[in-house]
Design a binder for these strands. Structure first.
Length: 594
RNA sequence: GCGCCCGUAGCUCAGUUGGAUAGAGUGUCGGCCUCCGAAGCCGAAGGUCGUGGGUUCAAGUCCCGCCGGGCGCGCCA
């Protein structure tokens, strides 16, 4: 409808130009939007306000000339000029009702479009290091990323969902060392656990597994492992730093010790044990959450192919690298970054940044037209250097969009749930899912704008009342299903064709409001997709459910008159279809009964 | 200190890319079930859009300065 109006106005403008008016005026994009106030009609355009100055005429005069030149349309009941020069469009009742047939015809496809034109977009999200289970912060990235991907697919993009697995880097070595140290403890050794090691309970579980499989075959004395290491930072029980050392150097040296003491084969085994167990856990977790990927991209394969070294060489050849203090630096300040960045550390290890550049460049080489990364908001300072590196390598940084997701803060009994990463004491995504259910979790995670902090009320997410928006929407869906059950129980006939023939009987204000809400759905999906704003869809579904509940409360669907009953059933079924489609994009179930 | 994000009803948040009289939910108060699911509906009250300037036909929305909050500023990721 919106595009129809834009076309009509466009034709009117061309007509005016042909008549010699608006000469030399460049025609802008034509603004058409839904009105907030029903007395302003259904749609309004401010085109005359925007064009008045260039046309050297008063907005209202220009609006009148546009309206006069407007081609006729059977879907328009009335066109008015209002306020300073708005053109208000009133639709015919038939134009409202047409959406019911449209929905029933298209069913699952209603709301989908081809705006994306099949262009290839890659969405990379979550990509948490496989050094521990996903926590509630990752959960938001998962729900958000998955929904953005679904939305883009719905508007005609060819979407590739990817998880980048940091299975090669330093952090994985630290995990392996952590597992081994816990294993030593398990075997009776005692020592101060490194401050930079992984302290979560799952590390002890992995250590116990190592012991169960191999007994004490991996034991050496702790004293040996801790010989001649750089001093660690030492914290007291409250997490305050009491004796500063160099925790990074300490843990790196400890990793090297572990590797030397265990030997390549045994070290490899511990490493793989940790990686595989945790990655499997993450996969299962996400799958249960309804989040599936086309590809789990291994950082290790990048390194094995020499892609990281190739990037270093290319940057060196381009004169973008220099050596300082024994490390290799990238001149990211040339590309708007605040400071230059290390690509290769003094000890020869390449940084996370280096392999990330290789990965991102490869995304473009794989032929994606558009690349989207979903990151935690605490990584926002990382954006300029990645874009800078891409630019330095001749790729177009504008094709990369980084979407930042703020943390979710859990509340229980009105109080903030405390979490601490350092002690490994955090609420996992799995725990959250088990507590509130997948549907509530998926929905609550995308209810707010992504760059907004999210207050996640656990009690509300669990409540089964209208206070809980998930239940509120699902209940509207279940209600329609319930009406159909009632219909059968009462032995009433149903005839969809008869319903279509009697749509003109839908004249109640509540019915009109519901029809308008239904017609908005494709617009909402489009806006939510193109702006990466799933919350728009979530908010809309609440409004749609509200329109239905209000209608349902005021009027009976199962009336005795056949034509009206079938028309109302069709309207209800159309509502159910749209709710189902919308919830589907959000990854939320649409239950038939609750 | 510098950079990014955010300040809208008591609370949690929308606000259609600059449009008409700023909206929901929740909370408070008051109504609606001999009738398709009350897991619902209806109404009332509640606002200097943090603040001071600027841009223009039009500013919650764009620009600048303050105030207040969050995050970032490593040879960590």
């Amino acid at each position: 409808m919106k595009t129809l109006l834009q076309t009509l106005i466009g034709q009117a403008l061309l007509q005016l130009q042909a008549e010699g008016a608006l000469s030399g005026v460049e025609l802008p994009a034509i603004p058409v939007e839904r009105t907030r106030d029903r007395t302003h009609g259904d749609f309004a355009s401010s085109i005359a306000l925007g064009l008045a100055k260039a046309a050297r005429s008063k907005p209202r005069d220009l609006a009148e000339r546009i309206v006069a030149a407007l081609p006729a349309s059977e879907r328009l009941a009335q066109v008015e000029i209002a306020g300073p020069g708005f053109i208000n469009f009133f639709l015919t009742p038939g134009a409202y009702r047409a959406v019911v047939a449209e929905i029933l015809n298209q069913s699952d496809a209603f709301g989908r479009s081809q705006i994306g034109g099949g262009r290839r977009v890659q969405v990379e999200f979550v990509s948490a290091n496989p050094t521990g289970p996903l926590h509630v912060g990752h959960g938001r990235g998962a729900a958000f990323g998955a929904t953005v991907a679904n939305l883009l697919e719905a508007v005609g993009y060819q979407v590739h969902r990817e998880y980048y697995v940091n299975d090669a880097g330093r952090q994985m070595n630290i995990l392996a060392a952590s597992v081994w140290l816990r294993y030593l403890e398990h075997c009776g050794e005692s020592f101060r656990f490194p401050s930079n090691g992984y302290r979560g309970g799952y590390v002890r579980d992995l250590a116990a597994r190592l012991y169960a499989e191999h007994g004490s075959a991996y034991v050496t004395s702790a004293a040996q492992a801790f010989q001649n290491l750089p001093q660690d930072d030492i914290y007291d029980e409250d997490g305050n730093l009491v004796t500063p050392g160099d925790k990074e150097a300490h843990i790196d040296a400890l990793v090297e010790c572990a590797r030397a003491l265990l030997g390549d084969q045994h070290y490899r085994y511990v490493f793989e044990l940790g990686l595989n167990a945790i990655l499997d856990d993450i996969r299962d977790d996400l799958q249960e959450f309804g989040v599936v990927y086309d590809h789990w991209y291994s950082e290790r394969t990048l390194e094995e192919r020499g892609a990281v070294n190739k990037i270093l060489q290319r940057l060196r050849d381009a004169g973008q690298l220099y050596e300082k203090d024994g490390a290799l630096w990238f001149r990211s300040t040339r590309f708007g970054d605040e400071k230059d960045r290390v690509m290769q550390r003094e000890n020869g290890q390449t940084t996370y940044f280096a392999s990330d550049i290789a990965y991102h460049l490869e995304k473009f080489e794989r032929g994606f037209d558009w690349v989207i990364d979903v990151w935690g908001a605490d990584h926002h300072g990382y954006v300029p250097r990645v874009k800078g590196a891409l630019q330095a390598l001749g790729a177009d940084p504008a094709k990369l969009d980084v979407l930042l997701v703020q943390f979710a803060i859990l509340y229980r009994n009105g109080e903030r749930v405390q979490m601490s990463t350092r002690s490994g004491d955090f609420v996992t995504l799995r725990e959250l899912r088990h507590e509130v259910g997948n549907d509530a979790a998926r929905f609550f995670y995308v209810l707010r704008k992504s760059e907004q902090h999210l207050d996640f009320d656990l009690d509300l997410a669990k409540s089964q009342s209208k206070d809980n928006p998930v239940y509120y929407i699902q209940y509207a869906h279940a209600r329609v299903c319930s009406v159909l059950r009632q219909l059968r129980e009462k032995g009433l006939p149903r005839n969809e064709a008869r319903g279509r023939d009697h749509l003109a009987l839908l004249t109640e204000p509540h019915e009109e409001a519901l029809l308008i809400a239904l017609a908005r759905y494709p617009e909402v999906v489009e806006a939510a997709a193109l702006n990466h704003e799933p919350h728009q869809l979530a908010q809309y579904l609440r409004e749609l459910a509200n329109a239905f509940h209000s209608y349902y409360n005021e009027h009976r669907v199962l009336v005795s008159e056949d034509g009206l009953r079938d028309a109302r059933l069709n309207l209800s079924l159309a509502t159910r279809q749209v709710i189902r489609n919308g919830l589907g994009l959000l990854g939320v179930a649409a239950p038939e009964a609750m």
